[in-house]
Amino acid sequence: MKEFDYRRADGVSGALALHGAAPEARFLGGGTNLVDLMKTGIERPSLLVDIRELPLDGIEATGDGGLRIGATATNSDTAAHPEVRRRYPALAQALLAGASGQLRNMATVGGNLLQRTRCGYFSDATGPCNKRVPGSGCPAIEGEHHNHAILGASAHCVATHPSDMAVALAAFDAVVAYETADGPDEMPLADLYPPVGDTPHVETALPAGALITSVTLPPAPVAAASRYRKVRERASFAFAIGSVAAALEVRDGTVHDVRLAFGAVAPRPWRAQTAEKALAGGPATAEAFAAAADAELAAAEPLPDNEYKVPLMRDLAVSVLTELAEEAGA
């Protein structure tokens, strides 16, 4: 680990000022990803601006029935919060499916959104990786890629975004608020992760030096009947190989509202809008769910060793939506 300066931020503007004054500054939240990457030399900041004590950890209802979650709220506090569990149970489940109890106590909501991929080639500082060293190549395409992306990847990078939380947030149209020296601003979560293309090292659309201050969930009555299902290679404490966040509201046998997002299949949390459109107003049956999932996955471009993710995601989506439909009818 390279030597670095460390400052505790005093207020958001103070944090931005400290960050802006150093060439290679990083905001330090829970540190669960950043400190690890610093140990392996993948992140080499000159300054850490510790934002853990900023008053950004509140979780509160918005006037319109939504929820605003502060950027430094821990994953644990967010998952345990009664309003999160009541209004967006899939978000609580996604948070609880992530990492371990210890890591969830440390990790923050803002940091969770900005965590880096766990691709084994990205994590090995001694080898090539277009994300880490632009232009050095992507060894995963010819190498070990059984848990890499099938959607939205490119010939330059097939890594997935590792967050569980972000999948649920994507399903619920979360909006990310941030602040720069120019003042506060926001963008939909859907715009936070730019297309990979030939710039896999550009991982967010945030302006340079921006500090995420909160994530807002707009009101979504459908979310009260929502679920997150995660498939992984051990029963706990592992990244997903496929996950689904879904919410479903059925009226008179037809789909009144539906939300569907996929995790561990793309460089970003993957909102399944094609599937949602296919389902809207149609019957809430397993056949319809399967057809919708197939429509979404028609765009999949799997590699030889991750072809299984196509049927996996299809069956997961059908399984979770069917459960929700059955519970709604019960």
Binding site: Y6, L28, G30, G31, T32, V35, D36, L48, D50, R52, S76, S100, G101, Q102, L103, N105, M106
Partner: peptide, 13 residues
């Protein structure tokens, strides 16, 4: 009072 992995917690923090 909360469990934490101390290997990812900087001492200064």
């Amino acid at each position: 009072g909360r469990r934490t992995v101390s290997c990812l917690q900087l001492a200064v923090g």
